[in-house]
Write a protein that binds this DNA or RNA. Structure first.
Length: 273
DNA sequence: AGTGGCACCTGTGTGC
DNA sequence: TGCACACAGGTGCCAC
């Protein structure tokens, strides 16, 4: 799935068609996503989009009646911007038809994503999925002191810790491996054992890495594409993710893959201590 | 409170 | 060609 850069690219991709457009109709698929699609989504009809925001890997779309929807792309979710008369295809679960002749469709094969309707007057950021989220990586609140405090008494591996959305949002499996490589930190290090200087470097690198990836349209491993259907090109900048057994681009040592928290971790045993 | 494991799904690639 | 199996950008919930 989309990690933060891919979600940001998606947000930017749908904004031109969606912002200030009025919903003329909606399609609500029958299959359940991570949570069932609410029939209340029909209430969006007749309302104009006033804002499109991102919080972590969630996209929050606000309407002129103060209602909103929260969207998460899960592992395989992506939005398509198309003509309103484009046919629905397999795994299209939700579509908004717009008064500008276009439509926005959520397609998600694995159905790990979600769309939640938030009634007028309710604050979407108070939703249970959003209110527990940690700091945004681009905010000043994401710094070494913050991590030092969060990691106190934490024995979980640093790789697992930086992927924990209750600590910092947006860092998924690809960028976790990549940022630890660029920081020279062994991903199996207990988070409480990582030194402040290392955390300072890690923070800087995460911010930089995510920004660069956004600028390149995100990372496409298999099936991510922006709302325009184009893949992301940051994949060519990956040093370790998906490169098991290949020589490290820095020192030629073969890249190693291990499992941490039921997820794959890639690292260079020579560059990362 | 912190941690680890499971669950939710479908599609794709690999090896027999 | 067919089939079985492993694996995949996430994350909330549930037992210890």
């Amino acid at each position: 799935m989309p990690e933060l850069p891919e979600v940001e690219v998606t947000k930017m991709g749908i904004s031109p068609a969606l912002l200030h457009a009025t919903v003329t109709d909606v399609f609500i698929g029958e299959k359940s996503l991570r949570v069932p699609l609410s029939q209340d989504l029909v209430l969006l009809k007749g309302h104009k989009v006033t804002d499109i925001a991102r919080r972590g890997k969630y996209i929050v779309i606000s309407f002129d009646d103060t209602s909103s929807i929260i969207v998460h792309l899960g592992m395989t979710g992506h939005f398509k911007v198309q003509d309103a008369n484009a046919p629905l295809i397999l795994h299209d679960h939700f579509r908004m038809y717009l008064d500008n002749g276009q439509s926005i469709t959520l397609n998600d094969a694995r159905r790990f994503g979600l769309v939640i309707y938030i009634r007028a007057g309710d604050n979407p950021y108070e939703n249970k999925f959003l209110k527990v989220l940690g700091v945004e990586p681009f905010s000043d609140n994401f710094n070494a002191t913050y991590l030092l405090n969060k990691f106190k008494n934490k024995s979980i591996a640093i790789k697992v810790a930086i992927m924990d959305s209750h600590i910092v949002v947006g860092v998924g499996n690809i960028y976790a491996s990549e940022s630890l490589f660029l920081s020279g930190i062994d991903p199996t290090t207990k988070s409480c054992d990582v030194k402040k200087e290392q955390l300072e470097k890690l923070v800087d690198i995460i911010k930089d890495l995510l920004k660069k990836s956004i600028a390149m349209g995100g990372t496409t491993i298999r099936d991510f594409s922006g709302a325009d259907g184009k893949p992301g090109y940051f994949v060519q900048n990956l040093f370790v993710y998906g490169h098991e057994g290949e020589p490290c681009k820095v020192c030629n040592t073969p890249i190693v893959a291990i499992e941490q928290g039921q997820r794959r971790t890639y690292f260079c045993p020579h560059c990362q201590k």
